[in-house]
């Protein structure tokens, strides 16, 4: 347990000391503050605009970080040989993997908390009502990012960091349009039909984690919905992490 926490902590430290992380937080801060100015232009829709904009920024940056962290943190340690200092200690490769995932998750959580606190400050000064659905939307952005993080680690274990970044980006896009792909594929033929159906089955439907419209109209998702979506995320995370463990166990660390 101590080793797991330590790997997670030092992974968080690694990410927080990285330029990309700082740039991402800085960009998020700028954009959320910018939403006040932009909101002024949306006459009569300021509240809606600020809410929508801040949630979108939080989601995009969290997914961006999950993709970058997942694609680079483990692959770089393997390629540079740093991993050989870690897994030659009395710990299993699974523990290492879980530690890296937990550290990545903490980094994404830190980003969401920063964006959340900043958004709440903007809401307070702009008199935007702070609602429970908004808090729930942050939670759903977090678990969506965890699925993306697990997929990014998967792609980074079977390819290079750059390919992993592109593949995870693609997976995230498809995940947000999987239902549309599926419906389109039903009308298509041959390869398009197979692609639509396969991606619908194998990849997570990330739109399940999008409750922005609900937040804007102050509608709260049901407890049942939140539970089912959490289980859905846990299922995908577990499946991908088990696959990651199998791959890492078989990998020769050169």
């Amino acid at each position: 347990m101590k080793a797991l926490l330590s790997i997670a902590y030092y992974t968080l430290l690694q990410n927080m000391r990285h330029k990309i992380f700082l740039i991402s937080i800085g960009a998020g801060t700028f954009l959320i503050i910018f939403s006040i100015l932009a909101g002024e232009m949306a006459v009569g829709e300021q509240t809606r605009f600020i809410l929508d904009f801040s949630m979108a920024i939080t989601q995009v940056l969290s997914l961006f970080l999950a993709i970058i962290i997942g694609s680079y943190q483990t692959r770089e340690e393997i390629d540079k040989g740093t991993v050989s200092l870690i897994i030659t200690k009395p710990i299993s490769r699974s523990l290492y993997l879980l530690g890296k995932f937990s550290g990545g998750a903490l980094s994404v959580l830190f980003n969401i908390l920063c964006m959340g606190v900043l958004s709440l400050a903007v809401f307070y000064f702009q008199k935007v009502p702070i609602s429970i659905p908004y808090m729930l939307s942050l939670y759903l952005i977090f678990i969506e990012s965890l699925i993306v993080l697990a997929f990014a680690m998967f792609f980074s274990l079977i390819s290079s960091s750059i390919i992993a970044t592109m593949a995870t980006f693609g997976t995230t896009i498809i995940g947000h349009f999987s239902r549309d792909f599926f419906l389109l594929s039903q009308k298509g033929h041959g390869l398009a039909r197979i692609f639509g159906k396969t991606s619908y089955i194998l990849l997570p439907n990330l739109e399940k984690f999008n409750i922005k419209t609900m937040v804007i109209y102050s509608t709260s998702p049901s407890l049942y919905y939140m539970l089912m979506v959490t289980l859905y995320a846990l299922f995908f995370m577990t499946m991908v992490m088990v696959l990651n463990k199998i791959i890492l166990d078989k990998l020769d660390i050169q």
Partner: peptide
């Protein structure tokens, strides 16, 4: 010639290794 975690200083790195060694 491993590449050490360059975002750490020596004390942090050794402390990390101690944790891994339980």
């Amino acid at each position: 010639s491993p590449l050490y975690p360059d975002y750490l200083n020596a004390k942090e790195f050794l402390s990390y290794m101690c944790d891994l060694l339980n």
